[in-house]
Amino acid sequence: MDPKRPVDGLRVLVIGAGSAGLLMGQVLKKAGIDVAVFEQDESPTARPQDWSFGVYWAQDRIQECLTPELNALIDTVQTDPSYRHHEASVLPIYNGVTGELLRALPAPHAIRLRRRPWLQLLRTGLDVRYGKRLASITTTDDGVSAAFEDGTTEHGTLLIGAEGAHSVTRAWLFRSSPADGALQRVPISAFAALTTLPAPTALALRAMPSTWFIAIDPRGVFTFAALHDCAPADPAQWTFMVLLTWPADEPDEQAALARDSDRLLDKMRAMAEPLAFPFDAMVRGIPRGTKSWYTDQMNYWLTKPWDGRGGRVTLAGDAAHALTFHRGQGLGNAITDAAELQTHLRAMKAHTREELTRAVAKYEREVWQRGRDVVAQNRENTLALHDWAQVTRKH
Rank of each mutant, 00 (worst) to 15 (best):
I62N: 02
T336C: 06
D266Y: 00
D249P: 10
L70P: 05
P92K: 02
Y94K: 02
S89V: 05
I188G: 05
P92C: 03
W51T: 13
R84Y: 02
L265V: 06
P232C: 13
V374Y: 01
M1A: 13
M268L: 15
R129H: 14
V242T: 15
F325S: 12
G161T: 06
F38L: 12
H395Q: 12
D234G: 11
G25K: 06
R259E: 15
I335C: 02
F240V: 08
A384M: 14
V283C: 08
D252W: 10
T324I: 03
F148I: 11
A165F: 07
F38R: 03
A255Q: 15
D387W: 08
N299W: 00
Y363W: 08
M298K: 00
R259L: 11
S43F: 05
R327T: 07
A165L: 09
S210L: 09
P92R: 07
P274G: 08
V128A: 08
Y83D: 12
D229Y: 06
Q297F: 00
R353D: 12
N381M: 14
A171C: 02
S261E: 14
I111S: 02
L119T: 05
W51P: 02
A17D: 08
H326L: 08
G164R: 10
A179S: 15
V186D: 04
G143Y: 12
T324A: 07
A281H: 06
V14A: 01
S19W: 00
E250W: 03
G310V: 02
D150H: 07
A179W: 03
I188R: 12
V128W: 10
G328E: 05
V313E: 01
W118E: 02
S176E: 15
W368G: 00
P187A: 09
A46F: 06
Q342H: 08
A165V: 11
V12Q: 03
F53W: 13
G54H: 10
G317D: 06
D75Q: 08
R370I: 04
V35D: 01
D249R: 12
E154S: 06
D8R: 13
Q369T: 15
V144S: 12
Q342F: 03
E250R: 15
E42H: 11
K29T: 14
R112T: 09
H109Y: 14
L345P: 00
L23R: 04
P44Y: 06
A258I: 04
V360S: 05
L105M: 07
A199M: 10
L194Y: 04
A361D: 12
R61C: 00
G125S: 05
L66K: 11
R185S: 14
R185P: 00
G310H: 01
P6K: 03
T343M: 01
G311Y: 03
F38K: 04
T139Q: 11
E42Q: 14
R219W: 13
V97H: 03
Q377P: 02
L203N: 09
L205N: 07
E42K: 13
G310N: 12
T140M: 10
E64C: 04
R133M: 09
R61D: 13
W51L: 14
L91N: 08
A376P: 07
